[in-house]
């Protein structure tokens, strides 16, 4: 089930750059599909081709584009469900970082076929953490970094990230856990 990556890129490009840009991407990627399904499996090189054509069509550096994708998944109104699910990770940003270890297992409860890379958060003392994503591709590390940055804002924490994609590691330092008010979050608020 690799539809999640293709679908995420589709929604990101459509919501951020418009439908026309997306049609340009799929046409140039020669994928013969104009819209992807989260629940389906596509040929193995689909994601790589979408990323390559997206960077070409949008004229962006691949690392920046992937970080923006991560940010989009957390901040855009159309992705409110994703942001809410991540907020269930903990009451503050540090517990959220800690909860990343549980993310693949939790995700599997709702989408049994969806395998996310294992994540491991190691405290380095004095509000510093290393998020290790050994099974992730370097591109996924950038997506994750974008999402973590956005989640820090969401929690109202001040966080500085140092992304080492080849080493599959994101160093997060949190000088202020409560820097701003952050965004409201109430349990059970979305399904009412």
């Amino acid at each position: 089930m690799n539809g999640i990556a293709a679908r995420a890129i589709e929604r990101f490009v459509c919501d951020t750059y418009g439908e026309a840009a997306w049609h340009d991407v799929v046409r140039r990627a020669r994928l013969h599909v104009s819209s992807f399904e989260l629940l389906l499996t596509y040929p193995e090189n689909t994601t790589a081709r979408l990323v390559a054509t997206s960077t070409a069509v949008l004229g962006r550096q691949v690392h920046d584009l992937m970080e923006d994708l991560g940010t989009y998944l957390v901040t855009h109104d159309n992705m409110a469900a994703v942001r809410r699910l991540l907020r269930y990770g903990g009451a503050d940003f540090e517990s959220f970082l800690d909860s990343l270890d549980d993310l693949p297992d939790r995700t599997r409860l709702a989408f049994p076929e969806l395998v996310l890379p294992r994540l491991r958060t190691r405290p380095r003392g004095a509000g510093a953490f290393d998020v290790e994503c050994g099974e992730a591709t370097p591109l996924m590390v950038h997506v994750l970094a974008g999402a973590i940055r956005a989640m820090a804002d969401d929690y109202g924490a001040l966080a500085v990230l140092d992304v080492d994609a080849p080493a599959r590691r994101i160093a997060v330092s949190v000088p202020a856990l409560r820097h701003s008010a952050g965004r409201d979050f109430h349990l059970g608020g979305a399904t009412r």
Partner: peptide, 30 residues
């Protein structure tokens, strides 16, 4: 139906699976 109840994770003991249940309900909706 508890959206208006202003619940937070701190309202539940870590042994209480309610928060996981809420997470599941929302994930299932998605």
């Amino acid at each position: 139906d508890l959206g208006g109840a202003d619940l937070t994770a701190q309202d539940f003991a870590p042994t209480d699976p309610t928060v996981d249940m809420l997470y599941l309900l929302e994930a299932k909706e998605l």
